[in-house]
Simulated assay, not measured.
Amino acid sequence: MTEKQAHDRVEDYVRAAFESLPRTAARTLFSQNRSECTDPTDDGPAGRFEISVTYEITGLAVASFGAHFDAVVAWWRSHGFTVVADKRPGDQYVFARNAADSFDMSIQANELGKLYLGSTSPCVWPNGVPDAAAAEDETPAAVAEPVVEPPTPKPQPRPRRAAVDDEDFGDTSWSDGGTAY
């Protein structure tokens, strides 16, 4: 998957999950990020990126956020996502992951009455495959004799970051429009 395809998919997921909300809801792009995959639990090669988007959802009464969380979670479950973390009722935060493609989604509200819906891709290469230079660096220059090695088991998906909200999310003032993180 290329970066462009990952970006399209995070946008598609947010757009589709957003449709589970009432017609009074509106969404405004809050942040769009391209972050290098540097998580040590990933154990993958450098040069890959996570693509994410977050939208602020407006036009919904704060008193009904619980029902809107439930509607989004129901959409997730019917579209291959598994809830990984549900911090309600203490915190208004739910995090889910799609088992088929490892894309993440979250919905979160804060004490200022702001509601956010976002999606993040797994680590992807910008062009879908490692750069030729990186691939050459990993290839031995010459081998004297072919070495026959036993077959290796199929690689398992690498773990990704923990399902937690940003540490400073609740401490940040979102009334100034926020900044991309």
Rank of each mutant, 00 (worst) to 15 (best):
D42T: 05
V94K: 03
D42Q: 08
P151V: 09
V84E: 14
F49L: 03
G118E: 04
H79V: 05
V83T: 05
L115D: 05
Y55R: 04
C123V: 07
H68E: 15
I107L: 09
F103W: 01
A144C: 04
R97K: 13
A144I: 08
G113K: 03
N110S: 08
V148N: 14
R48Y: 01
P155H: 06
A63L: 11
A61E: 15
P45E: 01
I51S: 06
D131T: 01
P126T: 03
N127M: 08
S106L: 13
V124K: 02
R77P: 07
A141G: 03
F103S: 02
D70E: 15
F81D: 01
P155M: 08
S102R: 12
R158A: 15
C37D: 04
V124W: 01
A67I: 11
R77V: 12
T120Q: 08
G113Y: 02
V53A: 09
A63C: 06
K154P: 06
S121V: 05
S102V: 05
D86C: 13
G80V: 00
A85V: 09
T41G: 13
A61V: 10
A109W: 02
P126R: 02
P153H: 10
P159N: 06
P89Y: 09
T38M: 06
K154T: 15
V129I: 03
E56Y: 06
S106F: 13
T38R: 08
H68V: 06
V83R: 00
F81C: 06
Y93W: 12
R88I: 10
D131Y: 00
A63Y: 06
S64R: 15
W75G: 10
A132Y: 02
D42C: 15
A46N: 08
K154G: 05
